[in-house]
């Protein structure tokens, strides 16, 4: 106890501490509840759920719902399962994340080390673009994608996600490079290094952490997007979130809750894994997007 008071000024009695632990535990249960519901119900037969056993552990353990959600559940009109949509999401996310992160790194480099008049205003314009309600761009975007021949394609979605993601990626790299010693860059310039050489040899090798933040943020955001997917995807480019929604909302036949839960976990798994493996970077991205970087 005395050791703790060394670095924190607040002292709490035993009763208060017990109470605090109790409250913290209660809320931990609250946050875990939907995950628990999803997991236990995704591995039990349907009749156990409809019979009032949603909160119980499965009496009969089965992976059937998972198999069905993945490869044979009815999505829209086709009994394909979520599998093809999972790959659609991957095909969309990978290029979109890569392109927006590279652009963000270059923009951040220019905006901090090659400053010019009006650069802050330009950055402000880019940043505001992240916060607009995307309803305001849906109509012209649909038209533009049509004109560009990208309507209903994965590349159309990639373009959309790059455009509305560069504000954030630029923000990350800008804040990160802002504290990078400018003297090093001046010195390299005097030695005759050019624009790209400086970026490649000096800034990039130390950009690892912020690149991870940017990649994770973009990955999570784009994977979880629903609005753009629902508005612009065609039959063979629909992402996972749209397919999951179609699965759950379909009004035909028996509602297979266990399959819905398995599908929801499948849709959540990639981002959840990233969060578990690299949670620190995820939180850093969240904070940089809100508080000062």
């Amino acid at each position: 106890m005395s050791a703790a008071t060394q670095d924190t000024a607040i002292r709490t009695g035993r009763v208060t501490r017990t109470l605090i632990y109790l409250i913290l535990l209660l809320f931990a249960l609250f946050y875990m509840l939907p995950l628990y519901v999803m997991v236990v119900n995704s591995v039990k037969p349907l009749n156990e759920i409809t019979g009032g056993g949603m909160m119980n552990l499965p009496q009969v353990f089965t992976l059937e719902p998972w198999a069905k959600a993945w490869s044979s559940a009815q999505i829209g009109v086709e009994p394909t399962g979520l599998q093809p949509y999972f790959w659609n999401s991957i095909k969309m996310v990978v290029p979109a994340v890569a392109i927006s992160t590279i652009l963000g790194a270059l923009n951040g480099y220019v905006l901090t080390k090659w400053r010019f008049r009006g650069d802050t205003i330009l950055f402000g314009l880019m940043l505001f673009a992240c916060f607009i309600p995307f309803q305001i761009v849906l109509i012209p975007m649909a038209r533009m994608l049509g004109l560009m021949g990208l309507a209903g394609t994965t590349w159309g979605l990639v373009l959309v996600h790059v455009v509305y993601g560069i504000g954030f990626t630029t923000l990350y790299f800008r804040n990160y490079y802002a504290v990078f010693p400018t003297e090093l860059i001046r010195a390299a310039q005097i030695d005759g290094a050019g624009f790209f050489q400086i970026f490649w040899r000096i800034l990039l090798p130390s950009s690892g952490p912020i690149a991870v933040v940017s990649i994770i943020w973009q990955f999570t955001n784009i994977w979880n997007d629903f609005l753009f997917g629902a508005s612009f995807a065609g039959a063979d480019s629909q992402p996972m979130t749209v397919a999951l929604n179609n699965l759950v909302q379909s009004s035909t036949g028996v509602k297979e809750y266990n399959v819905h839960f398995a599908g929801a976990i499948l849709a959540a798994l990639p981002t959840l894994l990233v969060y578990i493996v690299a949670g620190r970077y995820f939180v850093r991205g969240l904070m940089a997007g809100s508080v000062k970087g």
């Binding site: 809320f27 931990a28 946050y31 509840l33 939907p34 995950l35 519901v37 999803m38 119900n41 949603m54 999570t220 994977w223 979880n224 997007d225 629903f226 979130t241 999951l244 929604n245 759950v248 809750y257 819905h260 839960f261 599908g263 929801a264 976990i265 849709a267 959540a268 981002t271 959840l272 990233v274 969060y275 578990i276 949670g279 995820f282 939180v283 969240l286």
Partner: peptide
């Protein structure tokens, strides 16, 4: 406490809808 932030609203919506 923070993991829900990593989920899609569609996943969150599905879980709560049936719960």
């Amino acid at each position: 406490y923070l993991y829900p932030m990593a989920l899609s609203f569609i996943v969150t919506g599905t879980a709560w809808k049936w719960f």
